[in-house]
Amino acid sequence: MKTLKKLFYFSFIISLSLFVSCEGEDGMDGLNGEQGIQGEPGQDGNANVIGVTVDPFPSWTSGSYLGQEANFVEITETSLTEAVIDDALVLVYFQLFGDNVWYPMTYAFPFDSGNEEVITYTYEPDLVTIYALSTTGPLNASISKVRYFIIPTSDATARSASTREMKVQQLWDKGIDINSYEEVANYLNQ
């Protein structure tokens, strides 16, 4: 029994020693690991926006614009249905001479002589038409590329004029300059 008491006492001391020796102060946390790779940001919800590039730009045809002689090019665009036209904004940009600078339409360039050159557009069902004219007659503008965006509104009950004005205002409110192709293209993820 004496041996059993010694064994019990000895076991108790060892257990107590182990218990006490396991306690200690909380140490500093280790270094954080490297940040993992983040995924690509998602789309801004512009899934219905249509962006079209016409490259190379077709040859001009003689005609008129608002009763004045002008050159024009017609671009067939089947996405421009009557319903889309009543409910969308269409923005058009172009490049001249093969340079990588985008100009907004309507573009007007006045000369010191009082003459002016104008490049503009219209749209209707199935058609975008680009016009080029000057105060002296048709203009053979050296357009190398055209890009246009068809931006539908999210409110299908809105009417055409007010819808386009609202969409332009929404872009301006978000800090997007609609005269800047780069800002519009970046915003629309096009």
Rank of each mutant, 00 (worst) to 15 (best):
88 A>Y: 07
58 P>T: 00
98 G>A: 05
31 L>S: 10
146 V>F: 01
101 V>S: 01
16 L>A: 14
139 L>E: 07
112 D>E: 14
181 Y>T: 01
121 Y>N: 11
175 G>P: 03
39 G>N: 03
33 G>Q: 08
85 I>T: 06
9 Y>N: 05
122 T>H: 00
65 Y>I: 02
118 V>H: 04
159 R>Y: 11
184 V>S: 03
63 G>W: 12
91 L>S: 06
17 S>F: 15
169 Q>M: 13
154 S>D: 12
106 T>Y: 08
51 G>C: 15
44 D>G: 12
56 P>W: 06
62 S>V: 07
79 S>P: 00
18 L>E: 08
108 A>Q: 13
44 D>V: 09
47 A>K: 13
54 V>C: 04
110 P>F: 04
114 G>T: 06
111 F>G: 08
76 T>A: 12
56 P>T: 04
66 L>S: 11
142 S>P: 14
75 I>T: 04
13 I>A: 10
67 G>M: 06
95 Q>V: 03
185 A>D: 08
181 Y>W: 09
19 F>I: 13
59 S>I: 13
189 N>K: 11
14 I>D: 03
43 Q>P: 13
133 L>D: 02
24 G>L: 05
157 T>M: 08
167 K>F: 00
11 S>Q: 09
137 G>V: 05
117 E>W: 09
127 L>T: 08
164 R>D: 00
22 C>F: 15
94 F>Y: 10
64 S>W: 02
62 S>H: 07
178 I>Y: 10
111 F>K: 13
91 L>V: 05
28 M>Q: 10
